[in-house]
Amino acid sequence: MEFGLMNAPASKSSFVATITSVLLTLRGVIDKCFATLACVSLLAIAAVVLLQVVARFMLPSSPVWTEELSRYLFIYLIVLSSGLVIRDDRHVRLELFQGLLSPALKRAYVLICHALTGAFAAYLIPFALQYAQIGQWQMSPTLEMPMYWVFISVTIFFALTAFYSALGFVLELLSPTNRETQ
């Protein structure tokens, strides 16, 4: 029985390492998907704006839909990149006193920030879905597409924010370097 008790901490550590590895792998796959979509959106913006510029100088009239499409692509570029910004801890925040905190308080601060951000985003998802439903009956002026596809970006934004905040919270809890400071 003592042998089993001696392996308990190693077993727990192994379990935490496995869970962390699975979460990091899942995050890596999701990151690649959204990073690819964000890159496609950025390239599409560049192509549409280039078309608009070339058309203004070389054609008798430029297409009217390019400005609208570039605006919607820009919205999606921001939305699709939002999770990556949270993952890399690059979002705008107040860091006035964070450097003065001890490692344990800094960890608590990071956990509280992830929890509050994720909870707030999760709370807003149903309202964002209601907002997106408004767009089902509206069409964009020049592209003549349902505005639902533009309005749903808000829901995607809050879903990504909630997901990455929850994932950041869990990974912060499981982080071995942070457990050593306790």
Rank of each mutant, 00 (worst) to 15 (best):
A104N: 08
F15W: 12
F163R: 05
M58F: 13
V49R: 01
C33W: 10
Y148N: 01
W149A: 02
L77G: 01
G28S: 12
F15C: 05
K12P: 00
A47S: 14
R107C: 11
A104S: 13
Y109V: 09
L94D: 15
L43T: 14
S82W: 12
K12L: 15
F97P: 03
L143W: 03
A119Q: 05
F15K: 07
T25E: 09
L111P: 04
A121T: 07
V49M: 08
M145I: 15
R87S: 09
Q136T: 11
Q130T: 11
I75P: 00
A55T: 08
L26W: 05
Y76E: 00
R90L: 13
D31I: 01
C113K: 12
T25D: 08
S70E: 06
S82R: 03
L80W: 13
F169D: 02
Y72C: 00
R56V: 05
V92C: 04
V170F: 11
G168Q: 11
L116N: 04
F3M: 03
M145P: 00
K106Q: 14
F169I: 03
P63Y: 04
A47L: 15
P141K: 09
L77I: 00
L23S: 03
L73V: 02
S21T: 12
G168E: 12
L84E: 09
R93W: 02
S70W: 05
L173Q: 03
K32Q: 14
I125L: 06
T181I: 10
S82A: 14
L173M: 10
